[in-house]
Simulated scan of single mutants.
Amino acid sequence: MDKKKSFTVDEIKRKLENYCVYQDRCHKEVEQKMREYNLITEAKEMIFLSLMKDNFLNEERFAKSFARGKFRIKSWGKQRIVRELKFKDISDYNIKTALKEIDEEEYLSTIYRITENRNEIINETDIYKRKKKLIEFLMRKGFEADLIYKTVNEVVS
């Protein structure tokens, strides 16, 4: 028997409120979560409006905390953060606002720190291959090309 438990709209709303309280969510994540409940369009819209009105769902707040978290915890560059936010259908305005959360000095010190750390663990004697590996690593992290070349050339000499 594959009987799905059914919930009232209020129960689903409470579940989604808790989902949003646990961690900032974007609209896309909440939409995906709503799909699990097979709601009619009117109920979805009603819940969405309620979540936004009661400030459980706030895309700007989500974008800001996402950018701060991915930068501070995972040391992602701005390009990677932008790419991931676009994937989550965040507006360009909210992406610009989110990037302002990243302090420029902290950003530069982070790229230098991770470049130096990575440089120490690369077992490559050929300076060009070493630089290539560092550049590829920093590209995957999502840093800007001009900043990567400048940093790699200063760290590896």
Score class of each variant (00 low, 15 high):
N58E: 01
K44Q: 13
E31G: 03
I121R: 14
Q32N: 11
E136Y: 08
D92A: 10
I81F: 03
T41E: 05
K100H: 05
H27I: 10
S50L: 02
K78V: 11
K4P: 14
A145C: 01
K64Y: 02
Y128T: 02
H27C: 04
K4S: 09
R80M: 12
V30Y: 06
S91M: 13
V21G: 03
N18K: 11
L49A: 08
D54T: 00
Y22A: 15
K150V: 07
F137H: 11
F56Y: 15
K3L: 12
L16P: 05
F87C: 01
M46G: 00
S75E: 11
E124T: 09
F71M: 03
I12K: 05
Y93Q: 06
L134Y: 04
K141W: 05
L108T: 13
E45D: 11
K100Q: 10
A67C: 03
A63P: 04
L108P: 03
K129T: 01
K44E: 13
N119T: 07
T110A: 07
Q23L: 11
S6P: 01
Q79H: 07
E144N: 09
K86Y: 12
W76Y: 15
D146A: 08
F143V: 05
D54Q: 10
L138Y: 03
E116G: 00
A67R: 04
T41M: 00
C26F: 05
K33Q: 12
K141Y: 07
D2T: 11
K13R: 11
L49M: 09
K96W: 05
V82R: 13
E31A: 08
D10E: 14
G69D: 12
S75R: 14
N123R: 15
A43W: 03
E120Y: 12
A43P: 00
K78I: 12
F137T: 03
E29N: 04
Y93W: 02
D2C: 05
E60W: 03
K88Q: 06
Q79F: 06
K86G: 02
N123E: 13
L85C: 02
E154K: 14
F87K: 15
L108R: 15
L99P: 04
R140Y: 06
K132Q: 07
L49Q: 12
N18C: 05
S6K: 14
M139G: 00
V155N: 01
Q32D: 10
T41Y: 09
A145D: 09
E116M: 10
I47Q: 06
Y112H: 14
V21S: 13
Y149N: 07
K3E: 09
E101V: 06
K141L: 02
